[in-house]
Design a protein around this nucleic acid. Structure first.
Lengths: 188, 188
DNA sequence: CCCGAATGAGACGTGGATGTCTCACTCGGG
DNA sequence: CCCGAGTGAGACATCCACGTCTCATTCGGG
């Protein structure tokens, strides 16, 4: 009977990522509940969006923890991170799109996570596994962008959900150009 | 005196990409004109968005033509395309975000250009310069996503506008991992 | 210099979304 | 079995953005 709060937020994120102007009524229907119930759980649209940001940041942090991005080689850490993020890619896409986060003087919680990701790329550069001509800031943005693009492609059935992490990781780390190392990895 | 239509559309795209729920008044102010004047040039919000799509598609097509993506090696063609697209990256980011384009039964003009880009990646795979384990459809989506991310990073001053094309092209083609070929290219 | 076209500011009515409320219903625990 | 908490549907007033209109002003060409 009781409404699954996380489920509502997931559906809301998926809808709002597709159609940012969706009305509260549309959001409620997408989540399979009545508009009144939606208002009972979230005071208003603003409160809903803030809850969305909060949950997204929390889930992203859990992914960072679960992937143990501070351990092992940097490339492996990036792969683990993308694997862990996949189930909540929709939420992250919403977060990345929702720049309101940036306008209102950068969000504190987000900054903490952002720094953590940037450090991962810095570490990869320092230990020689990542190239030095692409800044950690750009690699971080690119990671977000590719995850968002991937989540989108999955929603539109252009890519299967199970393939998404590999697509994102391979492109981000290895790029599109063919090379010997890629051939070797493919054969494993 | 007369309003610069393209300038208005550019500003509108930049604003709407950041804040999709921006009101007509905000759009007008962002473009430096009055709300009445905005309405004189575009019958309504829908008309504005349609004009935005039209201009974006037109500019993207011009970029595809100018880059002569059907000629030369595929990697070079991708680099030229990104260079040509850079000035209108904001418009393209809007187009990519504006999924309404996909909802309303895919847009005809867009499909034509999308096919053209996919063919570029297919060509690269056939001539052996691109890897085969990433589908042309995904590489195409990734290109759009990275261009959008790049445009965004430039807007937020995280990346200099002149560096954006290189950042996007290098990541898309070469990826983040260090390798001998990259070192060689850097020394040129 | 002067006239006309275009603009900016603002008033105004309208429609749709919002937030609140009521009421009947349903489900689950005691 | 029964009661209460939680829900869906809908009514309702309110508010905001929209689209239209007017009017004074400004800018540029003739």
């Amino acid at each position: 009977m009781s409404v699954d709060r996380d489920h509502v937020l997931r559906e809301a994120a998926a809808l709002l990522t597709r159609k940012a102007t969706a009305s509260m009524d549309e959001i409620a229907k997408a989540a399979g509940i009545g508009r009144a119930t939606l208002h009972r759980h979230f005071a208003g649209r603003d409160a809903l969006v803030r809850a969305l940001e909060e949950l997204g940041i929390q889930q992203f942090e859990q992914a960072l923890d679960a992937a143990r991005i501070e351990e092992g080689d940097a490339a492996g850490a990036v792969r683990r991170l993308i694997d862990e993020v996949e189930p909540v890619a929709g939420m992250l896409a919403f977060l990345f799109t929702e720049n309101q986060l940036y306008e209102n003087g950068t969000n504190e919680g987000w900054n903490r996570l952002d720094t953590r990701v940037q450090r991962l790329f810095s570490r990869g550069q320092e230990d020689g596994s990542f190239r030095l001509d692409l800044t950690p800031a750009w690699l971080t943005e690119a990671l977000y962008g590719l995850i968002g693009t991937g989540a989108w492609a999955v929603q539109d059935r252009r890519v299967a959900a199970k393939d998404m992490p590999r697509m994102v990781a391979e492109l981000l780390l290895g790029g599109a150009e063919r090379r010997a190392e890629t051939e070797r990895r493919m054969k494993r």
